[in-house]
Write a protein that binds this DNA or RNA. Structure first.
Lengths: 246, 246
DNA sequence: GAGTGGTCTAGACCACCTG
DNA sequence: AGGTGGTCTAGACCACTCC
């Protein structure tokens, strides 16, 4: 690709700021395997010439990718693709339907809500969108042998999954559906213990004051923020387990 | 402090780059409590005038502090001190004292119990010892700035740490002590949400029915099972966070 | 409209590494 | 010496929020 074409391609990537588009381009080459670990990445000067943006902008893109662990930089030497990180089983994104089937139990889900909504502060922050954007929202109850085991509240970036509201989530979980559209490359979990609301208690058939495990999971596909899920489990019916070695 | 003095103070901070010194100054004011959560931080323009550096430099400092979670910024509104987060990594075995010190807070612990006991079914299974073996047991409350944040119930294999009962665990955490004796090579976490007992509620100063996060952690050193810890956190005062890439 | 943060530029100087 | 990343500046334009 000649420099002007490359610049054009970057410009077509959407309304993202330039540094973000440069990040996306570089991350893409790394994640799709075109640039392999320990490969040398073009220098800032080269990218300035190739892409036609100022060095500060290129520098910001590469600096942030370094902070995110995709690149390694050495002053006086150059910029290189980092070795991929190890992953932990505790953090595996598991599809709840598969998890239940693996226990040889039956999985069923009820879709309680499937709507367009306006992102509030928490949701917009989690999806990295501006406050008041239109996003998709689903609320689904998952059952294991007819015992409710999870309430899945999911907020989805409509740019990634424009047909989200037309899906039948009793047949396919949002997790699987989204993974087909945009294979996830990155995720973040926050786990905490909370009390359930009255509505949630009813849906999960909880004993009074029964504690719940709340897992807030944000997922990315390449540089795009795909969805934000709040998974609520009855404390008595679910645990998270993880194993690691050093 | 007048602007010239402030700039001087920053210059004396050492050979760090300017943006890092600005970060340190701002972080310092937040962590020492001079700027409290939700306080407004001077705008970029104000800092440019007060400190005499260019706006790009100030911007980088504030942007990185935002990424680190110390600040929250809203376009058109301003920059504010973020609510402190109490969270730890899902992946790493962290020593709670270090974790608290990393937040620039004070750590203190009370030893409530330090005894020899007979392993019950759960404990013997966790330590892979026979039912009825003699094991060591400690119960310690950890405080962050005098707020109780964790009850650590730990069961230890006496073969690995014969002097366990003679230690002063207000000076060194069991975690560190054991790690020195037998560096851990393997671990397992089980995370769940539970209610606290009456005694635990009292120790942690919990509101009625406040849910808690329970982390049961087994650790190994080489082939030897070292200890089994049950870490109980108030749900409102602690989260677990994990990040991964594939 | 005034103030805020978000971004971008064109140039500059420096420390560092390698030939 | 020449290329690399690391930093800094002075100015600019924009989108956003609040009054």
């Amino acid at each position: 690709m000649t420099p002007p074409e490359r610049k054009l391609a970057l410009k077509q990537l959407g309304p993202l700021p330039i540094y973000a588009r440069v990040k996306a381009m570089v991350a893409d080459k790394i994640l799709c395997g075109e640039w392999r670990p320990n490969d040398r990445v073009p220098s800032e000067t080269e990218l300035v010439q190739q892409l036609g943006f100022s060095r500060m902008t290129i520098n910001r893109a590469l600096r942030e990718l370094t902070a995110e662990g995709l690149l390694v930089r050495m002053q006086g030497v150059g910029t290189f693709v980092a070795e991929p990180k190890r992953q932990s089983s505790l953090l595996e994104i598991q599809n709840i339907a598969d998890e239940i089937l693996a226990r040889h139990h039956q999985h069923r889900s009820d879709v309680m809500l499937l709507e367009e909504c306006i992102a509030d502060r928490e949701q917009s922050a989690a999806l990295n969108m501006s406050l008041g954007s239109t996003i998709f929202h689903s609320t689904i109850i998952h059952y294991e042998n007819d015992v409710p085991i999870q309430i899945e509240d999911r907020y989805v970036n409509p740019a990634i999954a424009p047909e989200y509201l037309q899906q039948d989530f009793t047949l396919i979980t949002p997790n699987i559906y989204l993974n087909r559209l945009a294979p996830l490359t990155e995720g973040e979990h926050i786990v905490e213990a909370v009390s359930a609301s009255t509505q949630q208690s009813k849906w999960l058939r909880l004993a009074p004051h029964e504690p719940c495990l709340l897992i807030c999971r944000r997922t990315w596909s390449k540089q795009h923020n795909v969805s934000y899920a709040r998974l609520l489990y009855p404390g008595s019916r679910h645990r998270l387990k993880g194993h690691f070695m050093s």
